[in-house]
Structures are given as C-alpha cells and as structure tokens.
Design a protein around this nucleic acid. Structure first.
Length: 570
RNA sequence: CGGUGUGUAGCGCAGCCUGGUAGCGCACUUCCUUCGGGAGGAAGGGGUCGCAGGUUCAAAUCCUGCCACACCGACCA
C-alpha cells in the first residue's frame, strides 16, 4: 500500500470526548470514526487490525474443531419468545418491526438461532458433539456506550456454540475452548488472565472470563499470590474470619452524633476505626414490597452479585429509596442500624464476628456504641455479602488476594440445557431414547480486543502493536523522494521486493517533510521502519528502526529484505 | 432512566455575561522558500452559530420548548 492514495486519516489533535488512551489513539491514528453514540466506522487501518485479530481467532477455532457459519443479524421475535428472553432480556435488546408489523430484534447474541438450526439439522447422537461459530456484528442497545469501541452498541464478536449428548462431552469441549482461547490471546501478544466468572443473564452454571490486564479496565479481578486462583471480584468469596467473636466488654450506649451521615464521619466523630463499625443497607426482598436489611463491616463494600443470589433478596438487586427507609426505620440512611429492626437481617461474615461495635441508632443524629450480637440483638442470618479486598485470604486457601483491573475480552460458559430444554432441542441416543442437548457457548470480543491491545501497548508517540495485530508489518519512509531519483528507485525496489515476499508493507510516498512521516508511522504503530535517504544511500545503506527501539541502525541495502524477513520471523 | 455539563467551519476552541459586520489555531487549496523529527511567508475556500418557537428595529448572544452528544451511577464481549 502507498500512503499517497491511502486514507491514513491521522490527526494531531485529540477529540475532546475521548476519555481513555485507546479511544484517543484509535481516533488519532485513523482507525475509527464515530458516526453516532456507540456506532463507529472502521477506516482502512483499523479494519486491517480487526482482520488480523479475526484471522487468529478463526485459525484457533478451526484448529479446535469448530466450524464457521454466519447467522442473521435480524432475528424473529418468535424464537426469543420461545426461549423466554423476549421479555427477560430487557431494553438492551434492540427490537424492530417489519412492514407487516411483525416483531424482530437485532441479535445481541445467537443462542436462539443456533439452537433452532441444530434442532432441525442434528437428530442423532452420532452427529455430536458439534461446535459452530461465527465472527459477526452484534447489536446491543447499551445503556451507556463509552470508551469508543470498548463498549459500543454495535461490535464484532466471535461467538461459538457447542452441542452435546452428555455433560461429560460438554466439559471436554469447554476445556478445549479454554485451551484455544489461551492460544488466541498468546498469539495476539496480550497479557491476560482467565478468571472464574458469574454467568449472568446468559444463564448456565460454570463460566470463565478472559481478561486483558489494564488499569482502565471496567472489571476488578482478584487473584491469589500463592496459587492459580483468579476470579472476577463479583465471584470471589470472602472466607469466614478464622478468629472467634470476642466476648463483650463495653456497655451499650446511645450517643448523639449530629451531622454524622457516613462511616467516615462516624469514625472521626467517635475516634473509632471503620473496622469496628457496621453499616446497614436496605434492599428489596423477594416478596413484592418486602425489605431486607444487609449488615456489613464499615470498611467493606456490598457485592451486589452475591447479594442478589441470596434467597429472600430480590433479583436484580434494588437499593431502596431513603423515603421508604424512613417509613420503616424512622431514620434516614445515615443513622440506620440492625438493633431492634423488625425486618429480616442478613449480616456479612466479617460483621458477624465483631464485638463492641458502633452502628446507627435508627434515630436521626444518634448512633449506638458498644453493641454486641446475642446480647443487644439476636445473631442474624450470616452470609458472604461483601466484596473481597486486597490482602484477604484466597478462597482456595493458598496465599492472599491481590486486585487488578481487567478488560473482559472473552467468556466461556457451560449453558447446560437452558436453551435446548426451552426450545426442545433433542437427539436420539444409542438406545433410541430422546435426550435433551447439553450446550456450551464461547464468546470473544473481537473489536474490543483491538482497543484492549492498545491499552496495553502504547507510548507517548502512539501505538506499539504486538506483531500479530499491526496493520502493516513494515513502513518504508523515503526522504526527499520527489527530488532524489536514487531514493525513489531504491524505495520502489524495496517496496516491490517486500510485496513479492508477502510482507504487509506501507510505502510513504507522500510529499511530506520527514518529521510528518515519522510521526504518522509511529502513531499508527508499524513495528518495523526502513528509512531511505540520500546520505546513507550513498554508502549503500538503509536505516532500520523497530517501533520500540531507542536507536536506528544502518543495514546493507542489498540484504534489507533478508534482514526484514529475519525481524518478522523472530 | 437519574445527576452534571456541552452544542459556533473537518478537528480543537473563543465570542454569549453587557444583543448591532461570525472569529482564532490545526487541517484544506494555490504560489514562493524550506526539506532527517509534526517548517516559514503570501493569498484563498469553507459556517442555516444543534432544531423550533418567542422577545426585539435587530438574536450565536436574552426567554421557552425540543433534540443530540459527553461525563458520573444500575448492564456486558
């Protein structure tokens, strides 16, 4: 490719609304342009990167025995009604009507379509297992699109669906997908971690996420420093404290705490540590109109995923309005406590082992100190409610937890029979009996990977692509090309040799000053750069610089191609 | 959906308070000089000031409504 007629679309200035580095660089390097909120055009350079990611994914899926298909983006409502998700999925499902007023949706995922396909085409256990995948545009009407293609309303995803006659077969494919995913992210040169995950709205039991580690990640992940344990923080269990609850030593007392409406202000007012306080959160119960009080140690945070899975607690979790709380407790948020409340109370494991603690008095402007379970109030139901913090013991008993942030780029699920049962997808087994299919599903956020890779690979000049993802492998930068015939012919010759050798090469034949060319090639992150100028050319040499190198080096022009081949191979 | 903020040339912004000729930088076009790290000069092109209504002799500016976008909280690849 030559830059002269190539839509390079680089820009010096950063659009004001780009918050994270990958979004800024994708705009500046001319990878994407925004059409509307959460909707992006992929420009030639961006598309090249996208295609490289797709190809790695495709190769590893094929290697793992999956077969590629393409399913429709537009899907009939009937299928979604059959699985129950037409009502369950919520407003994120973008619904449309055709000219006959029939309901359709734009596919956010394809469980229904693929199950419909397989129940028609596969009838015997002999045809199983089967694993079908596609690389295709998905549509989700995101509440809040942000960070460019990281969270957009339209995005490219690889989604695979496997079907099995038994749970054992499903587990085998699930493991194979785990291996394939690790291979994909390794080939792409990304620092990643597989983590135990919540299966969320897709359903099913076992699931793991693959996270690219980055400070800008939207997810927190917890992992042990003493074992392989790693989990999304939503799933990380906070183990029960090992120490028993101390005996009470203080007397129960109500103290005036004017203006105190938070744990922080309570601590400074009473000169106590947050670990000796308790906070009370009120959420909706399972029965319509009912409430449940959740009690956590002052320095801990509620884990909403854990909470909404508890029997008696409404799912999705709903924190109630202050007015509602006031009706029940007679006090506002800042003065709530578990003493003397008529509601079901659930205490976190850490809160349940406190003695002589402080909490709200259920009277505005007052708190209780010296509170003790079983003396001042009954010991309530105890559950794991809180978010783990750094330094907690690892749930597998080995080591302590560390927290990092991650970008979810892959997710594998064992769905079980959720969809096959709802949609009556069965085969006959070797005894001629009808068995419900077991199902797995496996997603990779292809467009998100592009952004995630930039989060991990950039410097103050631009993107520093991992080799496998770079839009071009080699940039040829001739200096003074329009004036020097020697430079022109050398550049043209090297360009043709590279093309003949199958190298992805970009020849910068623009009539621009050197600084402009260098800056652009570095911004878009081409890993290898050959500069051809009159001075070095007179000595029969080119100049080579790797994108991450500090210094350029001279190379013999006659061996430039071999030199590049060696660089690309290694 | 709630909270906050912003809509003026392709991009980044000023002008609005105090109504009166629509401006700056980058980018773009032409010419001259320059040419190994985002050059200098000269001359140009490009805007229904988000939309609709209102106030006024006069609205980018004041008022009302609507729309769009961004950021902060509940969703997910």
């Amino acid at each position: 490719m030559r830059t002269r007629h190539y839509l390079l679309a680089t820009q010096k200035e950063t659009p004001a609304d780009a918050e994270i580095v990958s979004h800024r660089l994708m705009l500046r390097a001319g990878l994407i342009r925004k059409l509307s909120a959460g909707l992006y055009t992929w420009l030639p350079t961006g598309l090249r990167v996208l295609r490289k990611v797709e190809q790695v994914v495709r190769e590893e899926m094929d290697r793992a025995g999956a077969q590629e298909v393409v399913m429709p983006v537009v899907q009939p409502a009937e299928l979604w009604q059959e699985s129950g998700r037409w009502v369950q999925y919520g407003p994120e499902l973008l619904r449309i009507k055709d000219r006959h007023e029939r309901d359709f949706c734009l596919g956010p995922t394809h469980e229904e379509v693929v199950t419909e396909l397989v129940r028609n085409e596969v009838n015997s256990y002999r045809q199983l297992p089967i694993n079908l995948y596609q690389i295709q545009t998905k549509v989700r009407d995101e509440i809040r699109p942000r960070f460019g293609v990281m969270r957009s309303r339209e995005f490219i995803m690889k989604d695979a669906y496997s079907f099995h006659a038994s749970q054992a077969s499903l587990e085998e494919t699930y493991r194979a997908m785990h291996v394939a995913y690790c291979a994909v992210f390794e080939r792409l040169g990304l620092a990643f971690r597989p983590v135990v995950a919540d299966s969320g709205s897709i359903g099913g039991s076992t699931s793991q996420e693959f996270h690219v580690l980055a400070d800008s990640g939207e997810d927190a992940i917890a992992f042990s420093d003493g074992s392989d344990y790693a989990a999304n923080i939503e799933m990380a269990e906070a183990l029960p404290p090992t120490a028993a609850r101390p005996a009470p030593t203080a007397a129960l007392e109500e103290v005036a705490t004017p203006g105190v409406d938070s744990i922080a202000s309570l601590c400074s007012h009473l000169a106590v540590d947050a670990t000796r306080t308790v906070k009370t959160l009120v959420v909706a119960g399972e029965e319509p109109g009912s409430l449940v009080a959740l009690v956590l140690r002052g320095d801990h945070s509620l884990n909403t995923v854990k909470a909404e899975k508890l029997p008696g607690v409404a799912s999705p979790l709903r924190l109630v309005e202050e007015a509602e709380v006031r009706d029940t407790f007679g006090a506002g948020f800042g003065s709530l406590g578990p003493v003397g409340v008529a509601l079901p109370v659930i205490a976190d494991r850490s809160a349940a082992v406190l003695a002589d603690f402080s909490c709200g008095a259920n009277r505005d402007g007052y708190h209780l100190v010296g509170v003790n379970w079983e003396r001042d109030l009954p010991l309530p139901r105890i559950e794991d409610l809180r978010e783990v913090v750094e330094g907690d013991p690892s749930p597998d008993g080995k080591g302590v937890l560390q927290l990092k942030r991650g970008i979810e780029v892959g997710h594998i699920f064992q769905l079980g029979t959720k969809y096959s049962e709802a949609m009556d997808a069965t085969v006959l087994d070797e005894h001629g009996r009808s068995v419900t299919l077991h199902m797995g599903c496996y997603g990779i956020g292809v467009s998100r990977i592009v952004a995630a890779a930039i989060e991990q690979n950039h410097d103050d000049r631009g993107i520093t692509w991992p080799a496998a993802m770079a839009p071009f492998e080699v940039a040829i930068v001739p200096l003074n090309m329009h004036k020097s015939e020697a430079v022109t012919s050398a550049a043209e010759a090297l360009y043709e040799h590279c093309r003949a050798a199958g190298i992805d090469v970009l020849l910068d034949d623009r009539d621009e000053r050197p600084g402009v060319k260098f800056a652009d090639m570095e911004l878009i992150g081409i890993p290898h750069r050959i500069v051809i100028g009159d001075k070095s050319l007179a000595e029969g040499e080119f100049e080579y610089k790797g994108r991450k190198d500090d210094e350029a080096q001279r190379i013999d022009r006659d061996h430039a191609l071999d030199f590049l081949r060696a660089k690309l191979a290694g």
